[in-house]
């Protein structure tokens, strides 16, 4: 893994140069706007909801965007004939994304601390964002593998959001009230993500936190295996074959 750090710093440099980080910061500003204009003074409960959107959808999108830039410019080919292995490449992309998630979290938390009231377990929410960002960045890889172009990626994201994220959000805002459906939702990753983020504000059963943590960790391992296995086929395709 001796080139992992080189790839990671390269990813972050390019995220800056290609304005991917800028777009992410812009989204943070939108979330700050939401926090600012809400009449709720203590934002401990709404805070995990905003971070949920960033750590899930933005993670998938940012991986897809950076990979599409590489496809478009042929730079993936240049990386493939460099002394790196696919694990270094995948992990560098995932962790650069996690860095972006953490920056967003840091900005929002700083705003909430200064201008609002917030009472959350900081270590808990940072750990949750790392796990959720990691998992969803890998989902971003899968969506990119199966997307022919950027529009395809966006469509894939929309489908993912519709199936996995919206039901969880509907439950959070009280539209889905059934306890049974609430339990069934544990089969989808977005539910685990939401549970972990909300647990930082307290009031979540320990079994639910453990189950969600296990889901995110095991899910990441399984998806990582899949992403790594499919990478060779993707690389061959992107090398111009």
């Amino acid at each position: 893994m001796n080139n992992f750090l080189v790839l990671l710093t390269g990813e972050i440099q390019r995220m800056k140069k290609y304005n991917i980080l800028g777009a992410s910061l812009l989204v943070s500003i939108i979330w700050i706007g939401v926090l600012h204009f809400t009449e709720i003074e203590n934002v401990s409960n709404i805070f995990p909801l905003l971070i949920f959107l960033d750590a899930t959808s933005m993670s998938m999108l940012l991986v897809g965007v950076s990979m599409f830039f590489e496809k478009q410019e042929g730079t993936l080919k240049s990386l493939l004939i460099s002394p790196i292995n696919k694990n270094e490449y995948i992990l560098a992309k995932v962790f650069s994304n996690v860095v972006s998630n953490i920056i967003t979290l840091g900005i929002l938390y700083a705003y909430a601390r200064i201008f609002k009231e917030i009472d959350i377990n900081v270590l808990g929410i940072f750990s949750a964002v790392i796990l959720i960002g990691f998992f969803h960045s890998l989902i971003g890889f899968i969506l990119t593998y199966y997307s022919k172009d950027f529009t395809g990626l966006l469509m894939g994201m929309l489908k993912y959001s519709f199936v996995f994220m919206i039901p969880v959000l509907l439950q959070e805002v009280g539209i889905i009230k059934s306890e049974l459906i609430g339990k069934i939702l544990y089969i989808i990753p977005s539910k685990s993500a939401m549970v972990l983020l909300k647990s930082s504000a307290g009031g979540i059963d320990i079994w639910s936190i453990l189950l969600s943590t296990a889901y995110m960790i095991l899910g990441s391992v399984v998806i990582y295996y899949f992403v790594s296995k499919k990478f060779d086929k993707f690389a061959v395709k992107e090398s111009g074959v």
Binding site: N3, V6, L7, G10, Q13, R14, K17, Y18, E73, G74, T75, K77, S78, I81, S82, P83, I84
Partner: peptide, 27 residues
């Protein structure tokens, strides 16, 4: 090995020097 592709394979929003510096660090 060194591979010179026919089509350009550079990060277009990086300078030439930034491109080369990034790749040099891998070797």
């Amino acid at each position: 090995i060194g591979v010179g592709f026919e089509m350009p394979v550079h990060f277009s929003k990086l300078t030439a020097n930034e491109n080369l510096t990034f790749f040099k660090k891998l070797y």
